[in-house]
Deep mutational scan, measured.
Amino acid sequence: MKVIFLKDVKGKGKKGEIKNVADGYANNFLFKQGLAIEATPANLKAL
């Protein structure tokens, strides 16, 4: 799943980066902690 990092995550990505991560990691950690959002066309356009 492509995500947009909202904050720096050690070993994974920096704020503003768009990266592919495992679905479970994105859903269970990044999204719940507010560290990233899904890289949907609408979210990409908002950058």
Rank of each mutant, 00 (worst) to 15 (best):
K12L: 13
K10T: 13
L30V: 01
F31L: 13
K10P: 04
K7A: 12
L6T: 12
L6A: 04
G34S: 11
N20A: 12
L35I: 05
G11T: 05
G16S: 07
K45I: 07
K15I: 10
A42M: 11
V3S: 03
Y25K: 06
G24K: 15
K7D: 10
K10W: 12
A46M: 14
K19Y: 07
K45Q: 08
K15R: 13
A46Q: 15
V21I: 12
G24S: 13
D23Y: 02
G16W: 09
G34V: 04
T40V: 07
A26L: 05
L47W: 09
N43I: 05
L30E: 00
A26W: 04
A36M: 01
L44F: 09
Y25R: 04
K14D: 08
N20I: 15
A26K: 09
Y25V: 13
A42I: 10
N43P: 10
K15G: 08
K10Y: 13
V3N: 01
G13L: 03
K2S: 06
K2Y: 10
A42P: 11
M1G: 02
A42T: 13
N20H: 14
G34E: 03
L6N: 05
L47A: 03
F5D: 02
G24F: 07
L44A: 09
G13P: 00
I4L: 06
G34I: 00
L6Y: 04
A36S: 01
G24E: 11
F29Y: 10
N28L: 08
L44W: 07
K19P: 00
L44P: 03
A42D: 11
I4R: 02
L44H: 11
Y25E: 07
K10N: 09
F31E: 00
P41T: 14
L47F: 15
K10E: 15
N27P: 00
E17I: 02
K2C: 05
F31H: 06
N43L: 05
K7T: 12
A36G: 03
L47D: 01
K2M: 05
G13V: 05
D8L: 02
A26F: 15
A36N: 00
F29P: 04
A26N: 04
A42N: 07
K12H: 09
K14W: 09
Q33N: 15
N28Q: 15
D23P: 10
P41S: 09
M1L: 01
K45C: 10
D23G: 12
K32Q: 15
V21S: 02
F5L: 08
Y25I: 04
A46I: 14
N20G: 11
I18F: 07
I4W: 04
I18K: 01
K14P: 01
L30Q: 02
G16Q: 05
F5T: 00
K12D: 14
K14E: 08
F29N: 09
K14F: 15
E17A: 07
P41C: 10
K45Y: 09
F29L: 11
K7Q: 12
G11A: 11
L35F: 03
V9G: 02
N20S: 11
G24W: 11
